[in-house]
Nucleic acid binder design. Structure first.
Lengths: 336, 336
DNA sequence: CTGAAAGCGCTTACAG
DNA sequence: CTGAAAGCGCTTACAG
């Protein structure tokens, strides 16, 4: 039997109210009773029941985080920032792995609703109408992380993917590359696929380069699809000197296929990735890539979410700065 | 204002008790009232309040998971198995990143206590006396994952590290290597440092090989320490043909330093890692390593924990099978 | 088949 | 400074 506030009150010979005041640092007791009660609390190892408190305050100090792929280095870093910042603010975080396509999102939303979380972070996936409706019905503050919605006005924190891709391509161009391939995500993917593709195309255009459709191929951001994408690119080997790859994992896949064909990066061609996951720095040679401040983004999301929880009102979104991390996979080319 | 059971009762013109019976599938109402009430529930979008339920049942259907390093691929895989299996069993999981040395463990234990989680999984860190005491005081079932305790009788699920290390070394020996270096974790680390070291030493002994202290160096399992360890090994370059590295991250560090010195794996020396993290398969060449069934281990931990939650009694521990994943970093040597 | 009442463990006016 | 009572949103005997 866990000891309750009643047990403490009995033992200390005071009322429940008094014990409550003391554990909540509210005025209304003498120093003497305070000491007496605190002694009993120590002795009995009393911890107030969070459920009872939550029931009264309508606050659980718990937030729910929905992630499509908990196992990826990308999600881990976001989660790391979220969890750390949540803990600093005395919030616990419930993780929900919604699956690759976010299939379990609705399920999780419903349990988060019953558990009365104070807020929800939806990461890396589009805000579908059904999600939005459920969240509205639940009447819980939400923030989108590494995602956004044109349709619904929900605050978000993310990087500008189009701009980041634009910079990645520009970086290649500044290093003398004019024939540039791309391994892109699907154009159906409004979050990470399309915008990176568009940024790439725009950079080429702005620098007076033409687009060569032969050397734009599509994967799903995963290692394996990087491999197959590279195989599609191989026949056009002499049409490019560099590749912009929309994820580090795909970049690693591409490089490993190249290496199997005795093609060396960056000597035979340059590569710039996207994400700056752990692998990027461990790769041989270390991968030049576009970094998103993932931990930082997680922290900002929490800060904003808590603000929403405390003052009901809407909050501005944040576009976080990306950065190109120069490592060893892009070679400066002297124009021929 | 969220709608409560009272609102539903009022609207449907029945008592609270009846509504309660209906949402809990308990006998005691006519088909007619059931339909009426369910209609109202839909209309009002009523979801029972989990806090109130938890207060009564003394069950929250929530478990707490303590991880020392949420961001590592190792922890992510464990967490993935845990979360998936928890969700299947209708449990939510609160993640707690205790920090590299588990410094925040006590803090988290206390909040998990207040939140009345039904069970706790402590992963990858030793069960210190203070943790054990707190957990006992909280009176919540615990299971150790990728960890164990000699001192306290707490169920655990892990791999036999000593045996796995023994196999890794034996694998090298079977491939003709007789001069084998090791990059180990600290011998002060009873969980992953000492046992892997011991398994390595025992394998050498059992195969009649002598131990060369020059080529046993110590890191902290991280990429950087793999780099510095390799630098310590370099002066003794001709005293080994293979290295057993106690983590994949360190193996990657070692290989990258080697590559900077124009040493190629496996042509110049072989490497076998430990963990089978994502990087292992993305590496060039892909890393031969010892795999732990991490997702599976997470699932087993949940299964056992839930069993403990339901029938108070103690549970047997599980030693999971490890496996050597043969990839491309170990070369068969023909004895000279 | 249905409802009134007590209770889960707390907090918060209210009264003294 | 202190306590009795009502209430947070439910469930569960108990009575009818």
């Amino acid at each position: 039997m866990k000891t309750t506030i009643k047990d403490v009150a009995l033992q200390a010979n005071v009322s429940i109210s008094t014990v409550s005041r003391i554990i909540n640092n509210q005025p209304g007791y003498s120093e003497a009773t305070k000491e007496k009660v605190e002694k009993v609390i120590k002795e009995m190892g009393f911890h107030p029941n969070g459920l009872a408190r939550g029931l009264i305050h309508k606050k659980t100090h718990t937030i729910g985080v929905l992630l499509p792929n908990i196992i990826s280095s990308f999600s881990s870093k976001l989660l790391n920032g979220i969890e750390e910042s949540a803990h600093e603010n005395h919030f616990s975080t419930i993780v929900c792995n919604t699956g690759p396509l976010g299939n379990r999102t609705l399920e999780y939303l419903s349990v988060l609703g019953e558990k009365k979380v104070d807020g929800i972070i939806l990461t890396s996936s589009p805000l579908k109408e059904e999600y939005y409706k459920e969240i509205k019905a639940l009447d819980i503050p939400v923030i989108l992380l590494s995602s956004m919605s044109y349709r619904y006005s929900v605050p978000y924190v993310k990087v500008d993917d189009k701009q980041a891709a634009y910079h990645a391509a520009s970086y290649l161009i500044q290093n003398g590359h004019t024939k540039i391939a791309m391994i892109s995500g699907s154009q159906d993917d409004e979050l990470a696929g399309l915008p990176r593709y568009e940024g790439f195309i725009k950079a080429l255009g702005d620098h007076g380069l033409s687009v060569n459709e032969n050397i734009i191929v599509y994967g799903d951001f995963g290692f394996q699809s990087g491999r197959t994408s590279m195989e599609q690119l191989l026949p056009f080997r002499d049409e490019f000197t560099a590749i912009f790859v929309a994820s580090d994992d795909m970049a690693m896949g591409a490089i490993s296929v190249a290496s199997e064909h005795n093609l060396k990066v960056p000597d035979d061609f340059s590569v710039i990735g996207y994400d700056n996951t752990n692998i990027a720095e461990m790769a041989i040679p270390p991968l030049t890539t576009v970094a998103q401040p993932l931990r930082e983004m997680g922290k900002v999301a929490i800060t904003k979410l808590i603000e929403m929880i405390n003052n009901q009102d809407t909050i501005a979104s944040a576009i976080m700065a990306h950065e190109i991390i120069e490592r060893k996979t892009v070679k400066k080319i002297i124009s021929t």
